[in-house]
């Protein structure tokens, strides 16, 4: 079994899996590296280039890992959305209150 799964079916994609947790860890690190790396790079500091490159690599890695799963979740969910919206409108009109 591959370390990172990139082909998903709707049922499996609805579960919280290792891919979600990897994105959860990489994402704040990417933010911090992009912010610090940009400031130091503008000041032409070599460390800034390294941190900025790391930030971009983390962003791309995160996208590569999580985007296929998000696409599958989205596709599957769109089919159910209409029924959920009707339910929501019933709630705002108090129709389901006993």
């Amino acid at each position: 079994m591959a370390l990172i799964r990139r082909n998903w079916n709707p049922k499996d994609a609805d579960e919280w899996t290792r891919e979600d947790w990897i994105a959860i860890v990489l994402s704040p690190l990417a933010y911090a590296a992009l912010m610090v790396g940009t400031a130091l790079s503008i000041l032409l500091m070599p460390l800034g280039y390294i941190i900025l490159a790391a930030g971009l690599a983390l962003t791309l890695g995160m996208y590569w890992i999580i985007n296929p799963k998000l696409s599958t979740i989205s596709d599957a969910y769109e089919k159910k959305q209409k029924a959920y919206l009707e339910e929501l409108e019933r709630k705002v009109k108090w129709e389901d209150v006993p």
């Binding site: 994402s27 990417a30 933010y31 992009l34 912010m35 610090v36 790396g37 940009t38 400031a39 503008i42 000041l43 962003t59």
Partner: peptide, 17 residues
């Protein structure tokens, strides 16, 4: 929300310099 906020943080870094 991920990319909008990334742009906010990068903007702050530009202001910082």
């Amino acid at each position: 929300i991920w990319s909008g906020t990334a742009l906010v943080l990068i903007r702050n870094a530009i202001w910082g310099a």
